[in-house]
Nucleic acid binder design. Sequence first.
RNA 1: GUGGGAUUAGCUCAGUUGGUUAGAGCACUGGUUUGUGGUGCCGGGGGUCACGGGUUCGAGCCCCGCAUCCCACCCCA
Length: 403
Amino acid sequence: MITSLRGMNDILSEDYERFTYFINTATTVAQRYGFHFIQTPLLEETALFKRSVGESSDIVGKEMYQFIDKGKNDVCLRPEGTAGVVRAFIQKKLDRAGGIHRFFYHGAMFRYERPQKGRLREFHQFGVESFGVDSVYEDAAMIMMVSDILKELGIGYRLQINSLGDNNCMPAYRKKLVKFVQECKDGICEDCIRRVETNPIRVLDCKNEKCQELYIGAPKLIHNLCSGCSYDFDTLKKILEDNAIVYEVNTNLVRGLDYYSKTAFEFVSDNIGSQSAIAGGGRYDRLVEFLDGRPTPAVGFAMGIERLLELIVMPEIKREGYYIGAMDENAVDLVVKIAQKKRKTDRAVVDYKAKNLKNHLKAADKINAKFCCVIGEDELTSGTIWVKDLEGKTEAVLKLEEF
RNA sequence: GUGGGAUUAGCUCAGUUGGUUAGAGCACUGGUUUGUGGUGCCGGGGGUCACGGGUUCGAGCCCCGCAUCCCACCCCA
């Protein structure tokens, strides 16, 4: 038997219901905030991700589905959504057009990781990207949008925010931190020694207790922000408070992708295991420029759909449409014809086998039909159809022309 | 990539110190004396016990390998 690849799932039945319910809800909310759909390719040039996500990240460093195609192009399946949207934004010359451009997207992402609960090799994200707005109000809008989506879906969460600083304050802070960590080099774990080289900020949330003790006196980014970043971060907190969004400041919150600056945030759930981040995002004002576009401020987020699926509280299923069956073999053709007519406007499910009434009612009930419609010998001769409303428990015999 | 656990029917799981024909519940399917469901009763189908080796007179059970899932690390949505 051929099975699906490791970490890649089929989505059907109940999961599919949840999946589409999520997409519909998230789409509705994004549109309320003035965002428009964008679809970009699953396959992109490898260089796009190397330049945007950053070679130091695990995503680019070891998790990409990368290969050389038949035209000798170095390509890979997208590991995240932002890079492609930014590429499209620049390619369509929207950076030159100026103004504000707001997009949302959803689709499959691919990372070659070891699978576990909430971590798949093919997974799906819903995300939004906003270009051309440098106001921190837009950052707050992102957070409020995620909050709205989660609320509509009945999902509880914790929100963590942080500021990563910008070009003015981040490099200086990084230097300061590296110096601090190198001074206590002897005591720190192997992972941290590696982190100093690749992504120094990461040492701060090391889980090693010994490291944590050593880092107690480490310089905090939050105390080293330049006046602009500091002011924006304070404003962000105030906007969230004004709009009744509960948050906690996590000074160790670091985004895994290199392109983030200033506002960073993460929505966390305590009910889905160790892969607890359900949405994450932030500002990335320099990414458009990195990818050869005109400098354009931008901010966005992404949500991991599979991680949300089991948390979604689904609305009650309602009885809907028609079940149509025959009690006499001679009525089967007629029943099919009637169903075709009904399908122009409603759901109609036909049973091709002649059965007794009781079995038809059972079957109609099973598929959650609102009406159970049956044609037997009596109806056949009189040109009628027997219809029972399974909710109201009322029944009637209608002339076929009136049905 | 590292460490640990699991894998028996469509699903959730039993299965004794290795010993006849591998079980249950749910689901599916049929019947329930003449045309009334979701909730009665009776029956039926369905398993290369994940896969590949080994030990043994004999393996669902013990050993080795492998695949997948789960848990933790790592990383992240």
